[in-house]
Amino acid sequence: MKTIPVEAYFVVSMILFGLGILGLVVRRNLITVLMSLEVALNAVNVAFVGADAHMGLVEGQIFALFIIALAAVEAAVGLGIIIAIFRYRYVESTDEITDMRG
């Protein structure tokens, strides 16, 4: 069990999280934005599970389960919103949705 150093999990988690954030920022299409968000969420899961494996706990895994559940909800609601926006506006890229302009 101890053969994998905990630092490795964290490095992987960090790289994935950074890529997720990067994708969240740079993607133009709304659906791909959401997908980048999934990557970031999974990165957190990796960190939780890695820490658990290192310390011999299960709370991290339980948290990971919760995160999976919430990711499902987030995907459902987010995609529902995308469909609703598309139905009313016929747009699905972020630069065309400027109703939040201050």
Partner: peptide, 14 residues
């Protein structure tokens, strides 16, 4: 910054 662009909001959030 208040242009209604989601990506900018994401950057600002981060």
């Amino acid at each position: 910054l208040q242009g209604g662009k989601l990506n900018w909001y994401a950057v600002a959030l981060s």
